[in-house]
């Protein structure tokens, strides 16, 4: 399989309003791909089309080499995992009973329940009724539910949005482990640190169009001014261009003991997003 996801000329129109306008991208097997964009940019619409919840107006969509019209088949559904804003749990049932239901629906061994409870740090809450859990704990159960059948491809819509930093870090480690085992991950997030830490490649989506696409390192290099920011002990801030002629200038500053700090210009994904789209990612 050459691509886990291949989207060509995708367009989605709701009541004469184009939510997605002619987007194309592909995701390689084993890749973590991040779709970043503000609310209303078309991220959720894209995920819904990729998971078969929504039909496209135009364009070709292939997921795991399966064409969009066949997304309703049990074979396709058993190969993907989804955590989206539409994901929910049975509030009157326990954590264990919720996971047991999906284990059976996906024909996964029941031992997977314990494995997943361990992965999401919820072993002690297995007998708790879901309605008694905090929002963060529910989010972790939803994640366990999405991964319980060891899918080849996982769609995660803001997976750590309700989690505290400790649990978010725990989930990040789990996702990296999952990815190392070969699972392809398609993720949407507002959290630039999360995208930088997890994603092999990211796409910036705004107004239904992909505005930029590449690895976080590539994008940072592309949008860097390639200058050095030097702060001296006299509290002077110098911007020195990365040019051969400036090498002596930097060397002299260091030799004279004037340099308090020196940094290369390395914009964050958030700064790049602002530069590309003119808006903050909130």
């Amino acid at each position: 399989m050459e691509n886990a996801i291949k989207v060509t000329g995708l367009r989605k129109v709701f009541d004469q309003h184009a939510a997605i306008e002619d987007i194309s991208f592909s995701v390689k097997p084993g890749e973590i791909f991040g779709l970043l964009g503000p609310s209303g940019s078309g991220k959720t619409t894209t995920i819904k089309i990729l998971t078969g919840e929504l039909g496209q107006t135009a364009g070709d969509v292939y997921v795991l080499d399966i064409n969009a019209p066949l997304f309703g088949t049990a074979d396709f559904k058993s190969r993907i995992g989804i955590l989206s804003d539409n994901s929910s749990l049975y509030e009157r049932l326990t954590v264990y009973d919720n996971l047991k239901l999906f284990c059976k629906l996906y024909d996964a061994p029941l031992e997977q329940i314990e494995v997943m409870l361990d992965e999401v740090n919820l072993k002690e809450a297995r007998s708790k009724v879901v309605s008694k859990l905090s929002k963060g704990m529910k989010q972790r159960v939803l994640l366990a539910k999405a991964l319980i059948h060891k899918p080849e491809l996982v769609f995660l819509d803001e997976p750590t949005s309700a989690l505290d930093p400790g649990n978010a870090a725990h989930i990040h480690r789990g996702l990296q482990k999952l990815n190392e085992a070969g699972t392809t991950i398609f993720i949407t997030t507002h959290d630039m640190e999360e995208a930088t830490e997890l994603c092999d490649r990211v796409a910036f989506l705004d107004k239904g169009k992909i505005q930029e696409l590449g690895s976080p390192d590539e994008l940072r290099y592309k949008y860097s001014t390639h200058a050095f920011h030097v702060e001296t002990f006299d509290d002077e801030r110098l911007v020195i261009e990365n040019e051969a002629g400036n090498a002596d200038k930097i060397r002299d500053l260091i030799a004279n003991g004037e340099v308090k700090s020196i940094q290369s210009d390395n914009p964050t994904l958030g700064q790049i997003f602002l530069k590309v789209t003119g808006k903050e990612l909130v």
Binding site: E53, A74, S78, S87, L89, Y90, L105
Partner: peptide, 14 residues
């Protein structure tokens, strides 16, 4: 209402 039906429909259950 609780959006659990969508979860069932996205699973292999018909």
């Amino acid at each position: 209402e609780k959006k659990t039906l969508r979860g069932l429909m996205l699973s292999p259950a018909s």
